[in-house]
Write a protein that binds this DNA or RNA. Structure first.
Lengths: 79, 79
DNA sequence: GGCCGTAACGAAGTTAAACTTCGCCATGCA
DNA sequence: TGCATGGCGAAGTTTAACTTCGTTACGGCC
């Protein structure tokens, strides 16, 4: 009855997105701190995003993509 | 001189995203109200998203994609 | 042994913006 | 004439992104 509040509710998209960001960040040879500075958020926020705790805001979505030198749609390509 | 009030300030991504959503919604033969119901937001929110006033939350991004029967990445393919 | 850089992870708090709710107006169509 | 759809503003609420504190851990390097 708490299912919709946590575990099963945790969107898979956030997790997939987070892993994708981490993959691209490491490929770009950036630390979480460097990415955080470029996006304009804290390192903890980047950490949370990569772990799927929460997604980025729509504005930061844009900044993450440009910091990683990819188009936004590439952040949603999972394989 | 009005540039800072609109064009340059308002993120282009929200506008492009909004137009993409509208295109896909019409292709799916859905009204704003039907899409709003499926996503779980108000018709005004869908209207705002399509006009680029604001973007969706990360969770609603997922719901919009599934309501339109497309992968999330397709919402960010602009041409 | 210790120090440093990187990062995972929690809890609690703040804040920005997504979202709602009220309007009004325009268009097109039955 | 209605009714459905939708653009658009303003003001309010609420969610969740984001911050700010921590702690823990691992690897390399001195």
């Amino acid at each position: 009855m708490l299912a919709h509040l946590m575990g099963s509710g945790m969107s898979q998209l956030k997790k997939q997105f987070g892993k994708r960001v981490q993959t691209l960040r490491l490929a770009a040879k950036l630390t979480q701190e460097q990415l955080a500075n470029e996006v304009g958020v804290t390192i903890e926020s980047i950490s949370n995003i990569e772990r799927g705790i929460h997604g980025p805001s729509f504005d930061n979505l844009e900044k993450i993509a440009s910091a990683l030198n990819v188009a936004v749609k590439n952040l949603f390509i999972f394989d």
